[in-house]
Structure formats: C-alpha cells, structure tokens
Write a protein that binds this DNA or RNA. Structure first.
Lengths: 139, 139
DNA sequence: ATATTTGCAAAGCCTTTGCAGGGGA
DNA sequence: TCCCCTGCAAAGGCTTTGCAAATAT
C-alpha cells in the first residue's frame, strides 16, 4: 500500500462533497468515503466490487457516473497507465507522479520533490503538464 | 509531423524484416514500410485505413497480428497514452519520451538528451524504466 | 414541481482469440 | 509436406449512452 489512510466519517465525506458543490447522495458518500479513506488507486471495477459488499445495491453505471462527478469536482484525479486499460482513481489531487511495481502491479505515488526534472525542447514547444511513470520493483 | 522520413524501398524493408528474423510476407512488408518510412505514430486503425488504400485486401486482424510481430521483433515500439485508448506504433525503438500537442493531438518524440532527470526514491524502490509524457502546445 | 440522479440494457471502442483456409519454405 | 500466416467472425474488457424510474431541492 501507498501510505496509510484514515477512514473518514460519513459526515466528513458529506461535507467534502457539499464543499465541492456536489449533491451528497448516499452512493456518492459511500464511494467517495471509500476512495478517500481506504482505497489505493482503485479501478472502477474495484469500486464496484467494494460497493457490492458494502452498499445495498449499486449499478456499474452509477460507479462510473460517480467517479466522473468526483473527478469533475476536483475531489479525485483519474489516471490511465499503459500497463492496464482500466482507469484508476487517486485521492491525491496534487501534482505527483507514479511508480509501478511490476511484480505486484501496485501503484505508488511519487512526490514531485523526489524527482528533479528539467526539460529543454526546441523552440515552439510549450510544456503545460508532465506525466511520469516509473517502473520497477519494490522490495 | 515529427521529423522527416524517407520512404523505404520494399527490398530494404524486406531486408529489415529478414534481419530481424521475421518472415517477409507481402502484408508485413507493406505495413512495416508504411510505419518506418512514412507514418508518424500511427494507430492500428490508421494503419488499417492506409492498407485499405494501398493494399489489395487486408483484415484488421492481420494489422494487429503484424504490428505485434514487428514489436516482438524489435522493429517497432508500442506506446499507450492516457489521452487515447488506441495504441500507437513508433519506429523509434530507442529510449525516448513524448510530447503531446493538446491542440492537434500530434505526438512528438522527445530525445532523452532533452530531458534532465534524476529520481531519488525511498529505500527499496528500484527503477528500471521511465515513461514520460509532456503535454502542451506547439506553435 | 422541477431538476438531478440512479440504473438497466444496449452500444461503442480497441483489441484478442478461435479456427478454417491458404501460401511459403 | 509442414508450418506459419491470413482473415473472418465472435468475444472480451472497459467505458459511455439513452432513457425511464426514483429521488432530492
């Protein structure tokens, strides 16, 4: 796992949603609480499986709708990586990079402070964003 | 476009295939010649469209089979980027990075010399590969 | 009442696979 | 001959969409 997370109370999650301008429906509170407080880079499928265990009834469409809502609201960030077709959702909305453990498939956040990067491109290229995936193994 | 390419003669392409241990079938020569000599980061679909115009008859399956063969043979590199679900094929098989022009969707190769990078991760992380996508605009 | 959200089913995009037929070494 | 290659069609994984029913403000 990436770093320890603290479970969030439903009221805390609800506040987060309202603050972000999102209607705090039961489904959204559940999913958002799961991702913010417990999950580590879950895919939609993992969220769906979690919901099947912890929520009375939730369709896959609602999972997708919800994560899209949360991403649009700035609560989550969505990432796609080359090693998998499935998008992952990250509660870390700051700029950061990732390390993929090729043995386990686990993703680890990499803080920008850990990376020293300077890019000098030819005239005319204006860089507005950088995505970095480090691949390797973690012992 | 990324950089100028020179069209390759069919015999040259055939030699490249044979050297790489790949049977030089008509389909493979055609596709390989297109990617090495003309195309710029084409997707399977773009290759298929090109084939529909320049080759008597080729199925999508053959396009996929062929690029897989060429990748396995070390003639091409396959990349997947977050902005599109479709894989792209790159005749540059050296280590390099990419710049995505967000206006046009065009991909540009970025030579490693253009990027100065040092990564210091916590104990236990061993980095074996790095993928970088720069996003921005090119005038 | 009015706008928003949920959820089912169907479709869409990209890719892979199974298998029969065909062609090259 | 024998093996590899081609290609059709079907399936598979992930995600989106259309639309009706349910829910929130």
């Amino acid at each position: 796992m990436n770093r320890k997370k603290k479970p969030l109370s439903h009221p805390d999650v609800e506040k987060r949603l309202v603050d972000a301008g999102v209607q705090p429906t039961a489904q959204r509170i559940a999913i958002c609480g799961y991702i913010l407080g417990e999950a580590d880079h879950p895919t939609a499928e993992e969220i769906k499986k979690w919901a099947d265990r912890h929520f009375p009834k939730m369709s896959r469409a609602t999972v997708y709708n919800t994560v899209k809502t949360l991403v649009d609201a700035g609560i989550l960030q969505e990432f796609k990586f080359p090693h998998s077709d499935a998008a992952v959702y990250d509660s870390n909305t700051d700029i950061h990079y990732h390390f993929l453990d090729e043995k386990t498939g686990e993703l680890h956040d990499v803080q920008p402070e850990s990376v020293d990067l300077s890019v000098k491109l030819k005239e005319g290229f204006k860089v507005k964003g950088i995505q970095i995936l480090l691949r390797g193994t973690k012992k």
